[in-house]
Design a protein around this nucleic acid. Sequence first.
RNA 1: GGGCGUAUAGCUCAGUCGGUUAGAGCGCAUCCCUGAUAAGGAUGAGGCCCCAGGUUCAAGUCCUGGUACGCCCA
Length: 1063
Amino acid sequence: MSQQHPQPFPALPAQIDLPAVEHDVLRRWEEQKVFERSLEQTRGGPNWVFFEGPPTANGEPGVHHIEARVFKDVFPRFKTMKGYHVERKAGWDCHGLPVEVAVEKELGLSGKRDIEEFGVAEFNRRCRESVQRNVDAFTAMTERMGYWVNMDEAYRTMDPEYVESVWWALKTIWDKGLLVQDYRISPYCPRCGTTLSDHELAQGYETVTDPSVYVRFPVTSGPLADAGRPTSLLVWTTTPWTLVSNTAVAVHPDVAYVVATDGTERVVVAEPLLSAALGDGWEPTGERFEGAEMERWTYQRPFELVDFPEPAHYVVLADYVTVDDGTGLVHQSPAFGADDMAVARSYGLPVVKPVRADGTFEAGLDLVGGVFFKTADATLVADLKDRGLLFRHLDYEHSYPHCWRCHTALLYYALPSWYIRTTAAKDELLAQNERTNWYPENIKHGRYGEWLRNNIDWSLSRSRYWGTPLPIWEFPDGRRICVGSLAELSELSGQDLSALDPHRPYVDDIVIPDPDADPALPLEQRVARRVPEVIDAWFDSGSMPFAQWGAPHRNDAVFRANFPGDYICEAIDQTRGWFYSLMAVSTLVFGENSYRNVLCLGHILAEDGRKMSKHLGNILEPMEIMDRHGADALRWFMAASGSPWAPRRVGHAALEEIVRKVLLTYYNTVSFFTLYANAGDTWDHSRLAEAPAPQDRPLLDRWMLSELNRLVRDVDAAMEDFDTAAAGRLLTSFVDDLSNWYVRRSRRRFWAGAAAPAGASAFATLFECLETLTLLMAPLVPFLADHVWAALRRPDAPESVHLAPWPEAREDLVDTDLSAQMALTRRLVELGRAARVDSGRRTRQPLARVLVGAKGFDALAEQLRDQITEELNVQRLDPLSVVGGDLVDYAVKPNFRALGKRFGKRTPLVAAAIGAQDAKELVDRVRATGWAHVPVEGEAVDVSADELLITEQPREGWAVASENGETVALDLDVTPELQRAGLAREVIRLVQDLRKSSGLDISDRISLWWRAEDPTTGQAVAEHAAWIGAEVLAGEVVNGEPDGEAHSVASPEFGVTFWLRKL
RNA sequence: GGGCGUAUAGCUCAGUCGGUUAGAGCGCAUCCCUGAUAAGGAUGAGGCCCCAGGUUCAAGUCCUGGUACGCCCA
């Protein structure tokens, strides 16, 4: 029969190769230019501005790159369906140390000296090349995962227009006086003459033995200065060479310090360290000071070898001082320690640096002149001892950073460096943070807010090669110019530089002549040269909102229409990275943060719970995963598995589960629909108009449509709240309801066919559910959703689901009362199933009666009662009350939630009183009057039915299951009539199996013959022949064997044989 | 050392406004159903809701402290 009608839907086989489908869909997107059209058709609509955080195109892409890219795709798709215009400009972060390190490795270079010998021009050319190589791998992965982003017009932070925009931003900050030069303490190798990055630092720790010395610093002012006998601060250090430049002594403001004496001298130490630092023979004198009281006490410094330009050598307060080691008094030498430097800045102390860049002390100094810093220790300690200042000298074994190349001990060394005074904008940053929505919210005032509150100036400059050159030119007399564009530089330098590559070394060759200089001076003395540094690559990426357009020099209007952004998303490691650099740059330059909503994801871990890394061998390649499970499965995992804010483990098992439970259940429901829509009197979209109005459909359909519209409302709310996990849970549970309840309970109506009255509603309802569900699924699983859409779509609907509008919930179809009734129905069915299992009566055996005792059962609609009898295969459904009260056991429990509201503190008493009552009497009274009195502390208290949890169970001859006050009881009596009906069901199943194994189409008609050896089965078949024939589509059911060929099946269990032949 | 987060079944995770019988999936066991069938369903075993205090009539849920792990920073 199916051949008589053209099939309205393409056949969707139950088996599906998801990765293959995805490749088809990718091809279709490409051919039909779906992404471009989705942008085209929203043009003119409101903008929803998305900023792509540029991945560093350094190294191969990994699974963790998929994570953020899923979220960067889902919400733009969602907003596009809602009618917004969402530009998606890709970007690449090109500069920075990681690129340099990779190229150094490739070239076999080691360190800055090598790079300079190799040639900066060629080195930077290689860096540029390396970046471009990796972009290809990212592009392939991005396309495969279905991330729609415009890579043809991607911005690159190394492009001249981009660099110019960054220069402009720097100049803006310069003009505000917030770009300044200051000392920065960096780990520095004096032999290689270079600073080391944190990454390099981590590679070079070695265990060494250093002197650990306790030194007396005699107090020269304050209450202890005139104590009659000399009193000294006892100061501990493991770097005696830094005592030459001792500048101050730091104490913790909240720690107690005491004076101790051995009878001859007096020293000051932290109270908790008294015995540890001094050993035996020392007694506290009773003099005791809070650290805060000691501020500005002066002392006699240990060496008088260098000059100090400003006042120094007094006690300062610092929170970082601990009482774990030493004496609780910490020697300060700001040129050689980051903490020391910070403290010195806050006190305005001078930075004295007697060690030269090669690691030796300045030549003219007494005692240590020209000596390498580390070897000066012995000389200095000996001198302290000679002068009686050395209190104690030990050896101290600890881990100290060394140069990973030459193993020279590193120097923490103050070098001139460029800073952005973000601390000056701290209040504004905090205010901008308040106006920004963080997901999850705790980041805002937690990890990120904390970072802002402890803001430190942004250390901007890097003494490297492959980066945006710092656009500051300096004259010999110290005057400086910050340049904001190539045009400006052209003008200042007097040459056309519009085609200049604004990278090193070319930009280093540009000089700016001083128009006012004496022409007689040599050239070098009347031109400005660029400072040698490049800038932190984070400043590049933080500038992307304007620099991606080359604004303000180019596309300024485009930039202004796309600022600030509505949405950015990265993993949590970006809080102090991109999230901060974006906020800092735009707040400093525009006085406004550049993003409104920021999604902050947890990290992706390997299945073993560890980070994926090559040496652990637990890496999953993204392309391999997608070829095995499909990109949709991986996308669903990222978006909806667990909580995106938390770290998550990805593995094959998790992805297989998603495929089976979510994607295939959804797809199989669609496949089921097309199977029946294509069969018999086919169903096509024109029948939608003939279907009854939703409110006139059977309750099962009305329930499903109610659930559907609730789903639309809730998924929309979840997506608006950037909560894909909630959306995923809602969708999963809907798919389960649709497949395992609605379709399961509606199968007979689909068998009846599209033309049958029963089928009209079912087909329409299922179609509407699938159509809307597919729209809701589209942002999360764009491939499968579009595949389904292509199969199901109405003739006038958009070609792709991604060109279709987001659905709107029809609140008028949401029926919460019906939802509650259906929930009760399903709970009762579950109880009935449990009772059947206990009783050992298989479901094919019809039973006479089921009894139900449950609140709300009386109000349960007839159609829903029918669902229960059908699903449980029973003939009658009655309330438990039809059984005489004497045959039923009652149990009553207090409903605490209800009682608590009314009785508060007395709840336990009322609960106890309820438990003490005779259950049956209590139930009778409540049933009769709606209230019952229970005695509580001599007083009669009313309780209502709602405040009780009543469970009732029949005593004899029933299979009973109850839960939460709801009871289902099955009549176990199987009469001969019931037995024969059960046998008829058995043979129907037998014949259905035969149909299937014979390869018949679901709508093929047959002739059926049978012969029974078992008399009871024979009687059952004869008695139910009409029913059997109708069920198995047999035109005739003949007792006897067929002539000629026929498919046959014999059942020894029931003593019957069947033959069938297709009509 | 500091900040932030996480901790619920063997595993992966839900758990709303605090309510006394804490759920799902996977895995395991035993079954059932089947014209979606290499699917589906039921039942069962499996819980110190990390620990200790506190608030409350009532705590997996709120508060304080601790432990372990993770991330960021020093």
